[in-house]
């Protein structure tokens, strides 16, 4: 739907006023945050190397390379700005912003304007990366809101969300909770917003959504339909996952241990052990020995509800008593002498 010219002009005018009211004192500054981030990564990497955590060190090295590239890019931009003959900040005029809005409408087919909410948005085509369907995304620029660094705020909203199984808020490898992590595009995207180059802004965010950086995703596409084992943090496909029969946490096949009696899977915390055979058994299946109160699995608890140890003891005692019984029979006087009080007596009514 094409918007009336008047509506586009009003939007352009409002955006222009938002842009000129921004605090440009923050424009020329050294990228300290990125510097300290790199510094932290270097120290973490050194620590990992010292402790022999080779995989962690490699992962940190990769992250460091990306962060250093961003730092270099920011410094290059700063140098470029100072070397340029152009004025420091070139904010687009109302007319230019109007032309930008027309170009966006032409590029994306539809431009949604909301003067009351002070937002403009476009919707991308359905995005699929490496065979994983992510759906269309709405790129919504809230020009009435500013970020803490003075740039205009924007959101990336999944219109037909297919989030990662491990994290519902990750709707794209580089989008979490409607916030896109711009990576190498951070400087240019922010610069386009600062200058009111809205066409560049929307096309660059859309390009970012169509590109996958396997080095630094919130959730890797290879793990999109996978889940993390709560115990060992290993990643398994959704079809291979198991849930603990008691606390229902996600488990991999290695960490899920079956109860010896009911065969249901349980996590390490929820699986108890039989005091007799020490086999894994869930608390529902364990029963106490009536004699020693030991927790026993069904196999170790005998029909007389005694554990095998108690049963063996009782058998031994019975066997010890048996010769005495034979002896009493042979010598009735002795047998009478050892009889306890009241044995054989019966209450007779008067």
């Amino acid at each position: 739907m094409k918007h009336p010219q008047k509506q586009l002009w009003r939007t352009a005018s409002r955006i222009y006023h938002c842009l000129v009211s921004q605090d440009y004192a923050t424009q020329l500054k050294l990228p300290f945050e990125d510097w300290w981030h790199c510094d932290r990564l270097i120290r973490k990497r050194q620590q990992a190397q010292r402790r022999g955590w080779n995989l962690a060190a490699l992962k940190l090295e990769r992250e460091l390379k990306t962060s250093l590239a961003q730092l270099i890019q920011q410094l290059t931009t700063l140098h470029g700005e100072l070397s340029s003959d152009s004025p420091q900040q070139q904010i687009s005029s109302v007319g230019e912003i109007y032309a930008e809005l027309l170009a966006i409408e032409e590029e994306f087919g539809e431009l949604q304007l909301d003067l009351r909410a002070q937002s403009i948005s476009v919707i991308t085509e359905r995005i699929e990366l490496e065979g994983v369907y992510l759906g269309p995304f709405e790129i919504c620029l809230d020009y009435g809101n500013q970020n803490t660094d003075g740039t205009l705020h924007y959101r990336v909203i999944a219109r037909d969300p297919n989030p990662a199984i491990t994290n519902d808020s990750v709707t794209h490898p580089h989008v979490q909770s409607e916030v896109v992590c711009e990576g190498e595009g951070q400087t240019v995207i922010r610069r386009s917003l600062e200058q009111g180059r809205l066409f560049d802004f929307f096309t660059m965010v859309a390009s970012l959504l169509r590109t996958y950086n396997s080095e630094s995703p919130y959730v890797a596409l290879s793990d999109w339909d996978s889940v993390e084992c709560t115990e060992c943090a290993d990643v398994v496909t959704a079809s291979e996952q198991t849930r603990c029969g008691n606390c229902e946490i996600t488990l991999c096949s290695e960490c899920a241990k079956d109860c010896a009696d009911c065969d249901s899977p349980f996590c390490h915390e929820c699986l108890s052990h039989c005091d007799s055979c020490h086999g894994g058994c869930c608390t529902s299946c364990l029963k106490q020995c009536v004699q020693c109160n030991a927790d026993c699995c069904q196999r170790c608890l005998l029909e007389n509800e005694r554990c095998s140890d108690c049963d063996a003891e009782e058998t031994e005692e019975t066997e010890e008593e048996l010769p005495e019984t034979h002896a009493s029979a042979a010598n009735p006087v002795t047998a009478t002498a050892v009889q306890p009080d009241c044995l054989g007596e019966t209450v007779v009514s008067a």
């Binding site: 992590c181 390009s207 970012l208 590109t211």
Partner: peptide, 13 residues
């Protein structure tokens, strides 16, 4: 004239 890359790699924060 504007020259804009069609591939921009995002990241995680």
């Amino acid at each position: 004239i504007s020259i804009t890359p069609t591939k921009i790699e995002g990241a995680r924060s």
